[in-house]
Amino acid sequence: MKSARKRVTACGRILLSFLLVTCSTFLSAQTFTFTAIPDQDETRLTERFGRVATYLSQQLGTEVRYIPVKSYPAAVAAFRNDQVQLAWFGGLTGVQARNLVPGSEAIAQGAEDTAFKTYFIAHSSTGLKAGDAFPAAIAGKSFTFGSKGSTSGRLMPEFFVREHFKKAPEQIFSRVGFSGDHSRTIALVQSGAYDVGVLNYTVWDEELKLGKIDTSKVSVIWTTPTYPDYQWSIRGDVDSKWGAGFKQKVQKALLEMKDPKLLEAFPRSAFVPAQNSDYAPIEDTAVSLGIMDEIM
């Protein structure tokens, strides 16, 4: 009986979190809610981030809930709509979200995110070899980005490509695709469906470690210069709802998250402080590529 009830509870968990959040406006006490779009391994999101929610609850002394969101636009919509107050965003998504929610701030980033990188990978048949200089020989090949809203899979690589060729990607490559996901990019280049692809370096390193990559078929040919990426963004109005100093408390809790079990959900080795100005380069790049309009 007890286990049956437990199962029903588990069964309705995603749904409940989803609904309770939506109902929460009508309740006086709002639950502090966060979401996270990880750059890899989207499985068991609720389970993995559920642990993070428990940790934050303990640290903040208030109930904390996680809701799973899949797409970048939906996550930003939830942040804007105050359905979530805290979010683990990619660099570009964070800039876009904070742009739409005045007063919101970046408060922490992964230790790795201060100097993030993109790998350019190529299928062996292209004959492209790894090197320190920008691989100009990729011109004319077929090319795939990751997701349209990804910083490491789209924004930064597009920036470096444009900077080198002074042309739009469609004018350089025989075809430009959007695989939608970093792992997908590896699979597509490995199969030769696309000649060249770009992706988040941590995803590549992780899959290489797991032995999922056949290096005789696909290899890294260039690593971009570093740029800031993932960060925690928080809405500006949390202090008025959960009391003065709440934002600092959240920041402190994030920075003090040391349990590797919690950190592997992101996956990051630790969190370090961040602020909006850290992401100015990302914003400038987005504007220069025409992905964002200039802020008036």
Binding site: H123, S191, G192, A193
Partner: peptide
């Protein structure tokens, strides 16, 4: 048609 090694993934 431009593909090389679809069989691993397939």
């Amino acid at each position: 048609i431009s593909t090389l090694d679809p069989w691993l993934e397939l």
